[in-house]
Every structure is written in structure tokens, then in C-alpha cells.
């Protein structure tokens, strides 16, 4: 298993680590038993732009690096654009991940969807209409 330089960089100097006090969308996926939990905080503006995003991750090097990269990739973007982010795109932006670590990148995608879903729920909207699901099913809480 070999990590790319970019993975190692994002792991060593993760961007956007922490919490947002007045977040208006928070999502958490994964479980500690499998060894990975990811929590994403969003600050979304009234016109649907992600003004700020932060994360906390319990997981391996790849989990931390993908959290960092995913938050970088959606910062300043609209929710619609953010929803288009795939784990593949995150992995590619990191110059690839070892095959055994691809599941860690799914976590970042799911945590983001979960946070966006939470944002819509807080607005009183049904996230399922926008996301296609409420980003809270069993799949989202499984490690791979």
C-alpha cells in the first residue's frame, strides 16, 4: 500500500479541521467499530453557497486526507455543485488512493451528503427530494 505525496500532504497538513460553532448543516457517518467516523460542519449562505466547511475524522491516513480534500473541493461552491462531488473525484484530486483505501473516500462523500441533508432538514425541506435519499440509511453508516 503506497500513498501519493498529495495524500500524505493532506494527511499531514489537513485543511479545514475543526468545528463550526454556528453551523447550519452537520453530518456524521461511519462507526467507531469499523475504525472510521467522519463529521462535517457546513456554514451555508442564504443563496445556497458553502461559505465555510470544517471536519473531524477518526480514521486512517486516507480518511483524514479525503476529508481534507473534500472540504477544499466544496468550499465556496453551491450545494448543487457540492452534491455532484464523488468519492472518485476526491480520490483523483489526491492523485489516487490504494485500492484497499477507496472505501475511506466514500466516507467523505457520504458525510458531505449527510451534512447537506441536515441543512435542508433544518430548513424544513425533505432532503430526499433533492438528494434522492435522506443520506441517513444503513449504507451511509457502514464502513465500506
Amino acid at each position: 500500500m503506497q500513498y501519493s505525496e498529495k495524500v500524505l500532504d493532506h494527511f499531514t497538513h489537513p485543511r479545514n479541521v475543526g468545528e463550526i460553532e454556528d453551523a447550519n448543516g452537520v453530518g456524521e457517518v461511519g462507526n467507531a467499530k469499523c475504525g472510521d467516523i467522519m463529521k462535517i460542519y457546513l456554514k451555508v449562505s442564504d443563496d445556497g453557497i458553502i461559505e465555510d466547511v470544517k471536519f473531524k475524522t477518526f480514521g486512517c491516513g486516507a480518511a483524514i486526507a479525503t476529508s481534507s480534500m473534500a472540504t477544499e473541493m466544496v468550499k465556496g461552491k453551491s450545494l448543487e455543485e457540492a452534491l455532484k462531488l464523488t468519492n472518485k473525484a476526491v480520490a483523483e484530486a489526491l492523485d489516487g488512493l490504494p485500492p484497499v483505501k477507496m472505501h475511506c473516500s466514500v466516507l467523505a462523500e457520504e458525510a458531505l451528503r449527510s451534512a447537506i441533508s441536515d441543512y435542508y432538514k433544518r430548513l424544513g425541506k425533505d432532503p430526499a427530494e433533492i438528494l434522492g435519499c435522506d443520506a441517513d440509511c444503513e449504507t451511509c453508516h457502514k464502513a465500506d
Binding site: 500524505l8 494527511f11 499531514t12 469499523c34 475504525g35 472510521d36 477518526f58 480514521g59 486512517c60 491516513g61 486516507a62 480518511a63 483524514i64 475511506c104
Partner: peptide
């Protein structure tokens, strides 16, 4: 915390160790 991340960060600081973490 999770072991793999621990090992990689220790490595950055020059310390070689190992973990039994699944990750």
C-alpha cells in the same frame, strides 16, 4: 484515535513504530 494515522505522524516526526489497527 486510529493507529495508521498515528504511525504516519510519528514517522513525520522521525519515530518508527507499528500498529495493529485494521486500517
Amino acid at each position: 484515535i486510529e493507529g495508521e494515522g498515528l504511525i504516519l505522524r510519528l514517522d513525520n516526526a522521525g519515530v518508527c513504530g507499528s500498529t495493529g489497527s485494521a486500517c
